[in-house]
C-alpha cells in the first residue's frame, strides 16, 4: 500500500539526514521525499511517500516519531487529503510536434514557460498520477528531460498538522 506521511520537524541541519538515514538503515522504501521550512522558520515540513504493508507502515511512523527532531507526524493516507507535485518537462518541439505539445499541455492544464525554436518547457502541477499520465501522453522520443519535486500533501478540512 502507498502511504503519504506528513512530518513536522525541527528545522535543524542534520534533521533531513536523520530521516533519510532511518529509511536506508531499516530498509524502508522511499518513493519521494520533499522538505522545506514552514511559516514558522524553526519548523520544516516533510512529505514522505512510501510503500509497505500495515506492519511496516506502523514501524515507519513509530520510528519517525522516535527521532528526537520529529515534532509531529500524520499518515495523510488514513483520511481525505490532497497531494500535489510540480513537474518541469522539456520537450523537443521541432517540426510538427509544436502544436501537439501545446494541445496536450492545455488538456492537462500545464503552462509553457520557456520557448525556443526547437523546445518547450512545460510546468505542470497535479497529483502524481496526473503527471505520470502526461509523461505517458507525450511522445517519448520528444522528452529531453523531466524534473519532478515529489508529492507534497495536506489533509482536507479545517484541521491541520500544527504544533
Amino acid at each position: 500500500m502507498r502511504h503519504v506521511i506528513a512530518v513536522l520537524m525541527e528545522n535543524e541541519s542534520g534533521a533531513l539526514s536523520r530521516v533519510a538515514g532511518l529509511f536506508s538503515a531499516r530498509g524502508y522504501n522511499i518513493e519521494s521525499l520533499t522538505v522545506a521550512p514552514t511559516e514558522d522558520p524553526s519548523l520544516s515540513r516533510m512529505t514522505i511517500v512510501t510503500r509497505g504493508n500495515e506492519a511496516i507502515i506502523e514501524q515507519i511512523t513509530k520510528q519517525l516519531n522516535k527521532l528526537i527532531d520529529v515534532v509531529k507526524l500524520l499518515d495523510l493516507s488514513e483520511g481525505p487529503h490532497i497531494e500535489r507535485e510540480l513537474m518541469l518537462i522539456k520537450l523537443n518541439t521541432e517540426g510538427e510536434y509544436r502544436n501537439e505539445a501545446q494541445r496536450l499541455a492545455d488538456i492537462f492544464r500545464g503552462n509553457i514557460i520557456d520557448v525556443t525554436p526547437s523546445s518547450y518547457v512545460i510546468e505542470m502541477t497535479g497529483d502524481s498520477d496526473k503527471l505520470d499520465a502526461f509523461v505517458r501522453a507525450v511522445d517519448n522520443e520528444r522528452i529531453v528531460e523531466v524534473v519532478r519535486t515529489g508529492s507534497s500533501g495536506i489533509s482536507r478540512g479545517s484541521r491541520g498538522l500544527t504544533l
Binding site: 506492519a55 506502523e58 514501524q59 513509530k62 520510528q63 516519531n65 522516535k66
Partner: peptide, 11 residues
C-alpha cells in the same frame, strides 16, 4: 516504554 518496540517483530 518504547512504542516502537511494540509490534516490531511480535504483534
Amino acid at each position: 516504554i518504547d512504542p516502537a518496540s511494540i509490534s516490531k517483530t511480535i504483534r
